[in-house]
């Protein structure tokens, strides 16, 4: 796939010794359009360009990002072949079970995880909570997930993610939502699925919705694309780019309900670039073995023989929940606008 704006000619040699500035406040006049590498170069700073933000997501492709709640779990994930870990205090299944307001994790716990592993460390902030994002950027996390799994802090606005040097991943249920997040500066998209359920049905629904809308857009002429952009509430230029590429202009992972190697391979065959596994690993009988099996399943997703081998004797999978109106903790995927 190609990187947006990757053909922009190089400008002057930049300096990396730029003093840190407070970023992310809602009132700053950051570009409202999508990825513009040249605009950021003009600011005299080659750190945190859209190229390096989306580039890290490209390096994670074909990999598994695992939820971990402490340094010990992070080490197990790294040894099992995780390409990154997501540091959080409670996995989604526990947030569902316990209820209450779910917030950004304690920075000291995140720092312990950063120190324990060499792979990238991600952490979650509440939707719209740009100060939690400023805090996570300052302690040096590698990626921020503006996540519907936590309790939203703003019911109208998402974070202006262009204002940060640290890259963001966001959830989406359909193409319009994905392109709105990219427009706000997300460099990486995941399906929302339904976190903490161990039930892959919503992730499948969301990935199929995105693919189906991209296929429709890819055969439209320009007039039709204008109308379609209005219909799905997506910025026209991003929709046009998506139609040309016949895929999202950033990396697209599956998330929300993946519990088995077969689930992971299913999402890969549906066209995802990699998977997030949340509660599915450390809520299972043998986390290390299951984690390793899911890592292998994502690499060999088109090889049923290897999938059969890695699916053997994994112990108990997480129990899982059916998704209906009685779902404990409610449908998290509805959060986000």
């Amino acid at each position: 796939m190609s990187t947006p704006a990757a053909t922009t000619p190089a400008a002057t040699t930049p300096s990396v010794q730029t003093p840190p500035v407070l970023q992310g406040a809602g009132t700053t006049n950051a570009p409202s359009t999508a990825p513009s590498r040249s605009a950021q170069r003009e600011a005299g700073n080659s750190l945190g360009t859209f190229g390096v933000k989306s580039g890290l997501a490209q390096m994670l492709k074909g990999g598994v990002i695992m939820d971990v709640i402490n340094a010990e779990q992070a080490r197990i994930a790294e040894e099992a072949g995780a390409c990154a870990v997501m540091a959080l205090e409670r996995v989604p299944a526990d947030i569902r079970a316990e209820g209450g307001v779910a917030r950004m994790s304690d920075p000291s716990m995140i720092k312990q995880i950063v120190d324990a592993v060499t792979i990238p460390v991600m952490a979650k902030v509440r939707i719209g909570h740009f100060v939690e994002a400023q805090i996570l950027q300052s302690i040096g996390v590698d990626y921020i997930d503006e996540s519907e799994v936590l309790t939203p802090a703003d019911e109208e606005h998402h974070i202006n993610k262009h204002n940060f040097k640290v890259p963001f991943v966001c959830g989406a249920r359909n193409l319009g939502e994905a392109l709105r997040r990219i427009s706000e500066g997300a460099a990486f998209i995941r399906t929302k699925g339904e976190a903490g359920t161990g039930n892959v049905v919503e992730a499948v629904r969301h990935e199929r919705a995105i693919n189906s809308e991209i296929r429709r857009a890819s055969v439209m002429n320009e007039e039709e694309l204008y109308a379609f952009a209005k219909e799905i509430q997506a910025p026209f230029h991003l929709l046009k780019e998506t139609a040309r590429l016949k895929r999202l202009p950033v990396v697209n992972f599956a998330a929300g309900g993946i519990a088995t190697p077969a689930d992971a391979a299913l999402m890969m065959q549906l066209g995802c670039d990699g998977v997030f596994v949340g509660s599915g690993i450390f809520h299972s009988g043998d986390p290390a073995k299951r984690a390793r099996a899911i890592v292998q399943a994502v690499t060999h997703y088109n090889n049923p023989k290897i999938l059969a081998e890695v699916s053997e004797d994994l112990g108990a999978a997480m129990v899982g929940l059916t998704i209906d109106s009685n779902l404990k903790g409610g449908k998290l995927a509805k959060r986000g606008w």
Binding site: P14, S46, L47
Partner: peptide, 30 residues
């Protein structure tokens, strides 16, 4: 270079390349 916030782009002069007078954009990620 440290964590992702230190990832950067920089122009490189590479004598061995075709059109060597044109700098090559190096993208350095972790």
């Amino acid at each position: 270079w440290g964590s992702q916030v230190e990832s950067f782009e920089a122009d490189l002069d590479v004598a061995g390349l075709r059109d060597a007078e044109r700098p090559f954009t190096g993208i350095f990620i972790r």
